[in-house]
Simulated assay, not measured.
Amino acid sequence: MSPNTELAQAEVLFFEDLRPRLNGLAYRILGSFSDAEDAVQDTFLKWASTDRLEIENTAGWLISVCTRRCLDVRRTGDRARMDYVGAWLPEPIQVAVPPEAETRVELASSLSMAFMMMLERLTPKERAAYLLHDIFDLSYDEIAETLDISEPGGRKLVSRARASVSKSKTRHATPEPRQEEFLTAFQSAVETGELGPLARMLAQDARLSTDGGGKVAAIRDPIVGCDAICDFVSRNLRRYWAELDWTRADLNGSRGILIQADGQTSSAVSATFDEAGFVQEILIVRNPEKLHSLNPVQIH
């Protein structure tokens, strides 16, 4: 094997080791894992066509290029999302959760559907700056270079984003037994019609949202309130889901359910919780385009 071939293989291995980290960054910016994979592959192709000897910090270079590519994709996607039918929810992912308790909690809090939805309320540059600094540990100088802004400007973006994150209180982790308690109560309500356990877990201002993307049946506006949600579960979900297959899954670092019909996943169900452990929102993704790649993935 020639020295050049060995070097090329080593570089590819380096990129593959970094790929889960890049996928994690891209997914958090885009809210779509399929788009994230495309952005990371575009990053690889640009890196492969660049003279690597001119790159001082390869990891930093790749993260910067990936971020810029994601912001380009966001600009196109945000225009398309204006015409999206009904509620838009992030694409759910099955995460290969690490066994280490501390890493597991950190991963869950930064990938949760609640956190992903909060990120959507930030501007693209606020989102990127916050993720780069607080999740991926880049310096303000690196952020400024990546986003083509001044260093003080990068600090302001991170500060504004932190304020939104703190206000929304989305970075707390709900204990897994509480998550499982909800999933059991929700499934029982659909299959048996017993609503009591589910109702006791819902916050009074709880919401239920579904994302069908105009491709399958789904409610367009969120259902708000414990009574209204229980009525919807009893009158609608029980009619269509009671006889389907239910499978537990780790969705976005938390426990969720995949609803399957004829071996195909037709819905992904997850929930967000307030700090007291009550269910704040039930999220049901039904858009087939967001369910076709629900295989376990590695993401950092």
Score class of each variant (00 low, 15 high):
Y140R: 00
W241S: 05
A173F: 13
D72V: 11
C230R: 06
S270K: 09
M116D: 11
K290H: 13
D38G: 14
V95K: 09
R238K: 11
A206R: 07
P99I: 01
R238H: 11
F278H: 12
R121E: 09
D262E: 14
E194W: 02
S164E: 09
F273R: 10
I223P: 15
L138Y: 03
L25Y: 08
E106L: 12
I284V: 15
S293P: 00
V158R: 01
D250S: 08
R68D: 02
A217D: 13
R19Y: 09
L119I: 11
R75D: 15
G60D: 01
K125D: 14
A228P: 00
R81A: 15
M1G: 08
G196F: 10
M117D: 10
V105M: 08
E180Y: 00
D221Y: 11
T210K: 10
S164V: 02
W241R: 06
S32Y: 06
G253I: 06
G196C: 03
G263Q: 07
R52N: 07
R248W: 00
R75P: 00
C226T: 15
G196W: 06
L71Q: 12
K169W: 01
T67Q: 06
S168R: 14
E37K: 12
A271F: 06
A96P: 00
R207Y: 04
D211E: 07
L244D: 08
K169S: 07
